[in-house]
Design a protein around this nucleic acid. Structure first.
Lengths: 142, 142
DNA sequence: GTATTTAATTATCAAATGATAAGTAAAAGA
DNA sequence: TCTTTTACTTATCATTTGATAATTAAATAC
């Protein structure tokens, strides 16, 4: 295994993933939220409930900025904050009803785009893709 | 193959790729360029020579904004513009000497981080990763 | 019980980014 | 030749984003 080749492949691959996910999600993103806010919502959607600190860590943004964006999302009624019963400094953050609706719509849109991109792909290839996602997720992009 | 599962895997996967590439490249990015400028440089590095329009298309940014950022990169002597000999409206854009140096350093840094992330991974797993990258690159993230 | 640490907030600022309008110059089409 | 299209530039503006300092309140450590 030539690590140099693998490295080049990695660089090209991540650029492709960025470009394709941008393509696929650009229609999905409601124009009522900014890109950063959309990313936060996506994270909350798949990981809820989460705390502000967790969002801050995972989205690599400072607590003050995270707090500001969450406040905006809260003002738009897309998320619901709840005080942690055990540690009252913490917040338990979830999508609100409206937030769920928006993200379901977004995910539906992404799913459509993805299906379109995968149409004509054989059953065996789909299995291979599924398997490849698993391998990379566990071995590289953990 | 449950497409719903595959779709969820895809969403989680792209989020992971974004997070991990951010982690891996954050030290690589010279603080003399902005994130957007770094992405442009990375694209030029792997695709040179390129035109402004190609950068605009691929980086999904408007021509005016692309032009502005390229001007900044040019002012910093990181890229070299050359008039296309055939079509004088077009530009042939490459990294300058300084740009090459910077990007080699960045790629070296990314390579180190990647090797670190892959240390302890068996030879067979590396083969599997290599193969998985190929599959996803050609079948999904083309 | 006081000191320290943690979780989150508010306020403020500069910089980066995105969007748009209006322009130039070359190429292509009629 | 005249018109239209293409590739790119310049200028300007609003918004988003990132960074920092200062503050509050709760939990933990001593």
């Amino acid at each position: 295994m030539d690590m140099k080749d693998l490295f080049n492949k990695f660089v090209l691959f991540s650029a492709s993933v960025h470009r394709v996910t941008h393509d696929i999600t650009k229609n999905a993103k409601s124009d009522t939220v900014t890109p950063v806010q959309y990313n936060i919502l996506e994270y909350i959607a798949v990981s809820q409930p989460v705390t502000l600190s967790e969002i801050s860590d995972c989205q690599q943004m400072s607590m003050p900025n995270t707090s500001r964006e969450l406040k905006k999302l809260s003002d738009k009624d897309l998320i619901a904050k709840q005080e942690d019963t055990v540690d009252r400094r913490k917040q338990s953050i979830r999508l609100s009803k409206d937030g769920e609706v928006m993200m379901n719509e977004a995910f539906g849109c992404i799913e459509t785009q993805l299906l379109h991109r995968l149409e004509g792909v054989s059953k065996e290839d789909l299995e291979a893709i599924d398997c490849a996602l698993d391998i990379l997720q566990t071995k590289v992009f953990y």
